[in-house]
């Protein structure tokens, strides 16, 4: 890259100006390049999803030859055997497991942020591991274990597995909120004579409620979209949506793909709406990434 320092002193003003202009142009090109690349990455993220959405309205699940548009793929959803029960099954599994994960995760977050105890770091590490262990291994390990202790692959086994899987998401989000929480507020409340339950209800809970909600949502979504853990522990009588979809993918006939494209589009749409609402009301970015517009909250 060109740098202006150390240039010979006898350069004329015009040369300086030229050089400056060149430099400006390079800067601008690089800047534009950066933005173009960033835009390209967004396209990369979106292209396959957009193609699904497009194909969900197409007559044939192949892009070419293009046979025209239709809504019949969506009409086909209603008569699809097993779809409704898998959606119900996925919703119930996600809800039960997220409730368990949230309860345990919130309690554990208090323990981690408010108390010193032996093996605290170990506790925290193990609380995060379920999120990091590859799904195949968590699924296989729990399958063999459940079978041995007498829990056959089933709805219950899936809820237990997902409650463990969801725990780290709640733990990370809620404990992060509690770390930044001003404990002197609690102390003040107690000094004024409030007992711990009242303090929690009136002071602590309102502040961490959004974090609890975010943790619950994360745990819920993780459960809802999980295929691999459920594959090993759900058994043949429980058929979550992901398994139904996987069946359609691997049994890829044209009719199957048409229905699948429509269902996938509905999933993307539902998430788009939910996310838009969530972002309007809460600091989603803050929970997912960092602290940007944290001030919005209180």
């Amino acid at each position: 890259m060109a740098t202006e320092t150390g240039e010979p002193a006898e350069q004329t003003g015009k040369e300086y100006a030229d050089q400056f202009r060149n430099h400006q142009r390079i800067e601008q090109l690089l800047g534009n390049g950066l933005y173009a690349f960033a835009a390209l990455m967004l396209v990369f993220l979106w292209l396959p999803l957009l193609i699904i959405v497009f194909l969900s309205f197409a007559q044939s699940p192949n892009l070419l030859p293009f046979d025209g548009l239709t809504l019949s793929n969506y009409q086909g959803i209603a008569g699809e055997p097993g779809l409704r029960s898998s959606v119900v099954s996925s919703f119930s599994i996600a809800t039960f497991s997220a409730i368990i994960a949230t309860t345990l995760g919130v309690l554990a977050s208090f323990a981690l942020t408010r108390y010193q105890f032996p093996f605290r770091e170990v506790y925290r590490t193990f609380g995060i591991i379920p999120m990091i262990v590859p799904g195949v291994i968590l699924g296989v390990g729990l399958r063999f274990y459940f079978l041995t202790v007498g829990i056959n692959p089933s709805f219950l086994a899936t809820v237990l597995t997902h409650s463990l899987y969801g725990l780290p998401f709640v733990l990370l989000i809620v404990s992060a909120r509690l770390y930044t929480f001003d404990e002197s507020l609690e102390e003040a409340a107690r000094d004024l004579g409030a007992d711990p339950l009242t303090t929690f209800r009136d002071v602590t809970f309102p502040v961490i409620a959004p974090a609890i909600g975010a943790g619950f949502l994360f745990a819920w979504v993780r459960s809802f979209e999980d295929y691999i853990r459920a594959l090993f522990v759900s058994g043949i009588n429980t058929d979550p949506l992901t398994q139904w979809m996987f069946g359609k993918i691997t049994k890829a006939s044209a009719e199957n793909l048409n229905v699948l494209n429509a269902v996938s589009t509905l999933v993307v749409l539902a998430i788009a709406v939910a996310l838009a609402i969530a972002m309007n009301y809460g600091n989603v970015t803050g929970y997912v990434a960092g602290t940007r517009d944290d001030a919005d909250e209180e």
Binding site: T250, K251, A252, S253, A254, N256
Partner: peptide
């Protein structure tokens, strides 16, 4: 391994 994938492809 799946019949329908075979047919489709």
């Amino acid at each position: 391994s799946s019949d329908t994938t075979f047919i489709q492809q």
